[in-house]
Design a protein around this nucleic acid. Sequence first.
DNA 1: CTGCCTGTTTCGCATTGTGAAACGCAGGCA
DNA 2: TGCCTGCGTTTCACAATGCGAAACAGGCAG
Lengths: 263, 263
Amino acid sequence: MPPASPSSGDQVQSVTRALDLLQALNRQKIASIKQLHDTTGLPKPTIVRLLKTLIAKGYVANDPRQGGYSVTSLVRALSCGFHGDPLVVEAGRAWAIDLTRRFKWPAAIAVLDENAMTVRFSTIPESPISPFHGTVGLRLSLVSRSLGRAYLAFCPQAERNILLQMLSASKDREDAAARRPAALLRALQAIRSQGFAERDPGVEPKSSSTLGVPVMDGDRVVATLGLTYFTSAMKRAQAVDLYVPHLRSAADNISRSISRLGS
Amino acid sequence: MPPASPSSGDQVQSVTRALDLLQALNRQKIASIKQLHDTTGLPKPTIVRLLKTLIAKGYVANDPRQGGYSVTSLVRALSCGFHGDPLVVEAGRAWAIDLTRRFKWPAAIAVLDENAMTVRFSTIPESPISPFHGTVGLRLSLVSRSLGRAYLAFCPQAERNILLQMLSASKDREDAAARRPAALLRALQAIRSQGFAERDPGVEPKSSSTLGVPVMDGDRVVATLGLTYFTSAMKRAQAVDLYVPHLRSAADNISRSISRLGS
DNA sequence: CTGCCTGTTTCGCATTGTGAAACGCAGGCA
DNA sequence: TGCCTGCGTTTCACAATGCGAAACAGGCAG
């Protein structure tokens, strides 16, 4: 009787394992029992039992023509109870517009969607052609883009671990940095201490740069807010000094307007 | 020592319960322990233990300012391993175009997303103004629209139950029919036996109508394919006789092109 | 202060989940 | 053809694991 693993207060073992299985299934899009056994380390009979449960609930299917098991679309349905989202976007819209009015740069608000940040609203100043990929719906890498890194830096550790694990299996070139966790974690630590994110130095083009800050609901990141500026128009240090405080206060305002106990 | 509930082969109790909890949390966007106790019937200490586990894994948060617990955005990440989706849409695109070429009516392919069918591709014949809400991204009610009903009718029962449970909590007027399960289930049974779906008779406007068929991957629905016609241009019976066979064969072709063990 | 209601902790019990081992089956190889 | 290897499945005896009644704690209202 080991005194339980160091940090396992009183959780339910089988549930933890079932969730691990789901995660594993999610990374490998389709997996056999053997593969699951190898990646999770769980004994095969246990895996079978857990899978049976997940299948009975409809979250996993014994995918066609005996290829193996995989996550079903029903798992998607599980996320529709996550709210805050509409509220955040609504409030974010107003403050993004405000930032753009004041500084004449594009601003955007993005939320986590599956394994990337999705832009839910973005502004483009009347000015020239936009350096900002301003399309709503655009998916930004969690590891390389400012809006993604701000999220990763400020989300709870358990979540970060899971996301990184998923991303390291991704083929997306932009997410490749997730495979060098040490460097990435150091970068995230820096972001955390300075309070805002910039894109991964490796990403092109460098003619523009985005500053990203987290939008918190209580102690939880629910979105990230960003402001993009031309690097030719302004030096980095100057931009940071000038814009970051305003970004922070905008993010705070958004937080305030979505807090449930208003007043 | 009850001989276990009638149909529980060998599943893991705690996992089942944990998933029930997630579902409950998903319906009520935010819930206290008491509420969860009332809706799920689980004893409070059990709920606490399960919640602790879910929280440790990051799927649930003790939402801010002590309002209660709720599902986090991380649950969204869990669905990104569900594939088939890109393949289906790709293949669906080709066959939707084909249908439109032949019959000069709009066609569409949709997949489940959270609690509605989302149109992933749709065609609009050059002809007049389209009766079809052809926007990609449009979300169609699972209970009232043809593309939704086709999905509900052919998905596994466990999944149907969960979806209906979620929908009956929805405020969307179109989903209200989910609150009369008896009538709805009868309608779904009919859809199942005839092999295609039509919209809920109550939905306006009636100037056009869509025929929807399921796209299967093995024994699992992965999408639905629809063809919309003007009711003024063609009688229902005639349209059914003429179009349904072609819809079916298009759906079969899509199925074939996504089956993993090609030849 | 008192009563009520909700969340948390405790703790002995047996139900529940566990996993080594044995089995069955299919496909590969000689 | 028969042997073998590798994967999925089933079995079963054991005890660890999860269970939940009951007791406890804290907040809020009257």
